[in-house]
Design a protein around this nucleic acid. Structure first.
Lengths: 335, 335
DNA sequence: TGTTCCTTTTGGAACGTTCCAAAATATAGC
DNA sequence: GCTATATTTTGGAACGTTCCAAAAGGAACA
């Protein structure tokens, strides 16, 4: 593989001049510039980003760790990240953690060893200490998980408000027995659960609280729904911690012969593209993934440029998207 | 940020010993090893992958360029890649091209400048020459696109056979007027189109051939379907070049008041997780994404290890998955 | 013909590792 | 206690860039 010295030799100039050309720096005579460009082309030269990064002590790369690439919600997030990063002259490198803390941790470590200039963690499931640890060496923005420490910035949607929106919507139809399918630990899951609990209490439905696990996956949602189906008295509505979960639950309920929303209302969270499909048409809480991705990049760049040293915690507002999976309960609530 | 020298100083040893420890090399006394590990911990030292890669002239990183991260099919592909790579001690770094050739090209370039040891291109839309160019500097495996040159390996499903499976299935129901929604240039799209054309001819349906564009996206599929709806005589069946497309088309057809499969049968391609959702239940052609990802890694490692220099072109067999969007045509075919 | 001031070009040091040959130390055998 | 050998440790060179101070050329002017 050719190096900058090969190019210099071929073009009959010093390596420094070649470096100036590849970096797009001015002050190179037209003649030499042309000769260098030609040599680069002939030799198929490509600058070595490692050597460059080593001496510049920065890479202009933003690392993104996505907990679950199978969840289409993150597609939107990445698009937003990519778009804004490109505008600002940064590259984006993605790794994924397969929803497993240990895999996530090594995915983050990879990025850090590469010396990315900033790190975005999308719904990470790793422990707080791992995040804080990363935050000590590089600016970190956590997406959709409320970090309690100030070692990193965060961009979240207001999960408490979102959960409330969901419960409120169901209550407005007259539902009282509203179950919740949880999203496991990490991510915004814990907070959504908290939001559900609070909303239920606020509406005086403390005794109706029922929660089962759903792991933020389709399979998890399916299992959670099965668990609900085993109860002697079924809920009239179910709120799932994310859309994937909700869709898995939907399948389970219909397999059991229930009709949605006639027998049971269902609300998801995320508003991913599956939820919007006409055939799914899931009522859900929208969080603007693309915007959140863009904000994350901006928070990161503020830190990288040294414009800000105070932690920042952006909160975007979720909104209710009513589709076809919610309606009044079949039997009047006992009131 | 601490360097290996800081660690060495703190532990009272030479940098070489520290290096041996971080690389897990043997032959270090227990005493020194412990002291070094402790120093690493105290200083929060993390080896610099760039410096390491520079001298080792390899990174043990596999680069993956995914044309469309929004398409859930690639989630499965990445899982397969990741799994196998990890088994073999390689790391995976992902970039995405947002379905745009120029973005894809720079995403590839990023990875090459980082000197990844191998490159996987998943359904790239860039030109052949860009792929060949990359193939000159590093082993490349192209997924789901038949490369005609031998500068890279490929792993594809048999798109011709898959398309035939789809047409055959529809013909077996008595359909004759079977339209095709194309997937644009690049990817396996061109070949699927070819497969459709060939199958139609083989079944003596040459005059019934109708194709519209669908760009392998939901929106594209929707538009393609709208175009079909404008025709004076509607097809009784539609075969879409991928599931995303098919789902977009499904929406359009139902918005126009058509009932699937009663008024119109629909077949997709990929068998992505959306297609499997009970509510979509799309008849489709399955291609095993996870397996293809795993194979891609294996082909790459053969090249990296120098076990093989001859180009390899794996072809996996697609299979028909019959679900609920296909049935007999409403009116008997004119025969 | 010098002198001054630009513009263009250059070579060496640095970045943080690994590799390797050689040095230092420990162990064994007599 | 000495040699031979095995184990552990070390310092310097290399990897391919960028940065920077300084050198080399050119143009303008007296």
């Amino acid at each position: 593989m050719p190096t900058i010295l090969d190019v210099a030799r071929r073009a009959g100039v010093s390596k420094s001049l070649v470096s100036m050309v590849t970096r797009g720096e001015g002050g190179v005579s037209e003649e030499k510039r042309r000769a260098i460009l030609e040599a680069i082309d002939e030799l198929d030269y490509r600058p070595n980003a490692m050597a460059r990064g080593l001496v510049q002590r920065q890479t202009r790369i933003l690392g993104v760790m996505i907990s679950d690439l199978q969840n289409p919600f993150f597609g939107a997030v990445i698009s937003g990240i990519q778009e804004r990063a490109e505008e600002r002259g940064f590259r984006v490198l993605i790794t994924t953690g397969d929803r497993t803390p240990s895999v996530e941790e090594s995915a983050m470590e990879n990025l850090l060893e590469l010396r990315v200039d900033g790190l975005i963690l999308a719904s990470p499931r790793v422990g707080d200490e791992a995040i804080a640890h990363a935050g000590r060496s590089v600016p970190v923005v956590v997406l959709n998980r409320d970090t309690n420490d100030d070692s990193s910035d965060s961009v979240t949607n207001d999960n408490i408000a979102g959960a409330r929106l969901a419960v409120e919507h169901l209550v407005s139809f007259g539902h009282r027995r509203i179950a919740f399918i949880e999203g496991g630990v990490g991510a915004g899951a814990r907070i959504r659960r908290e939001g559900y609990l609070r909303a239920m209490r606020d509406f005086g439905l403390e005794e109706e609280i029922v929660t089962v696990e759903g792991r933020h996956t389709e399979e998890g949602g399916h299992q959670g729904a099965m668990e609900l189906l085993k109860m002697r008295v079924l809920p009239t509505a179910v709120f799932a911690s994310n859309d994937l979960c909700a869709i898995g639950a939907m399948t389970a309920f219909e397999e059991a012969g229930l009709s949605i929303p006639d027998d049971l209302s269902l609300v998801g969270y995320d508003n991913n593209r599956m939820a919007a499909l006409r055939h799914i048409s899931l009522t859900t809480i929208d969080q603007p993934g693309g915007d959140m991705g863009r904000s994350a990049v901006e928070r990161l760049l503020e830190r990288i440029d040294g414009d800000r040293t105070e932690p920042s915690h952006d909160v975007v507002s979720p909104s209710l998207v009513v589709r076809s999976t919610t309606g009044p309960p079949r039997f009047e609530a006992k009131a």
